[in-house]
Simulated assay, not measured.
Amino acid sequence: MIELTALGWAALTAAALLIGVAKTALPGAATISVAVFAAVLPARESTAALLILLIVGDLVAVWIYRRQVDVPALLRLIPSVVVGLILGALFLAYSDDVVMRRSIGVILLTLTALTLYLMKKGTLSSDNALANPRIRGGYGVLGGFTSMAANAGGPVMTLYFVAARFDMMRFIATQAWFFFVINVVKVPFSIGLGLLKPEVLPALAILTPVVLIGAFAGRRWVRRFDQRTFTRVVIVLTVISSLYLLR
């Protein structure tokens, strides 16, 4: 089992709680947990350790929101996301931690600014975000890439669903199902790259109940949000996550 200080355990516990909340209430917030895990554990190995906890949160979210998911929107994303996953695995195999983290931070900040600008101009509407293959493909490739390379695909897909003007529950449900599928697909890549190591499994077993608590707490909390507040919060979390990756 990995050896951690009391402060390290406290940080991972808080991050695990946030994973659960992010999966059922605040899409994109899990990137903050990514940053915490990377600070406590070696960055490359932390991506695989965190992946297991993300899947636990995904399982709760897809069960809770099983009726609100937009299946056609998900199916249209699959081809481009697969391309992104492959590119992300290659990038992860050949880059160091600093290059990986900063590259993704720059991608996320650039994409955030571009998305908000195009939405304000009216160039990026709900119709073309969902139907235009170039727009959909661009977000899909970046979502798969950032998800595979650093478990940071949440902000990219948050921006996509914001651009598509999904209502709050449809947003959370579709994103939950999207990342459940993506994270399961990522497991063989992580094992093949030697990132998922046996010594982290006991720690993950301890943290799993914390994720579950966060997920059910998030489900109760999200009912207090209105659509405008929800959209603003997820965009702010996306920017915060992106800035942290640039450190």
Rank of each mutant, 00 (worst) to 15 (best):
D96A: 08
F180P: 01
I206A: 15
G194V: 09
I240M: 12
G143I: 08
F91E: 01
I213G: 10
S241W: 01
S80G: 15
D226G: 12
A15I: 04
K186W: 03
T208S: 15
L7S: 09
I2P: 04
S46Y: 05
T229Q: 10
Y244F: 13
L75R: 15
A48T: 02
L108H: 00
I55W: 04
G138D: 10
D58C: 05
L109D: 02
L201A: 11
F91T: 02
V81C: 05
T13G: 11
P133H: 08
L54P: 00
L77N: 04
R134K: 14
R101C: 01
A217F: 14
L118H: 07
T13R: 04
L59S: 13
I135W: 14
V71M: 14
L114A: 15
G143L: 07
G218W: 03
A73R: 10
K120C: 07
G154H: 10
V233L: 11
L18R: 00
I2M: 13
V184T: 06
L53N: 00
T208V: 08
R44D: 12
G138M: 12
G84S: 09
G154S: 15
L17R: 00
L41K: 09
F166D: 00
F37P: 03
L87M: 10
L142N: 00
Q227R: 12
L77P: 04
L90A: 08
D97Y: 05
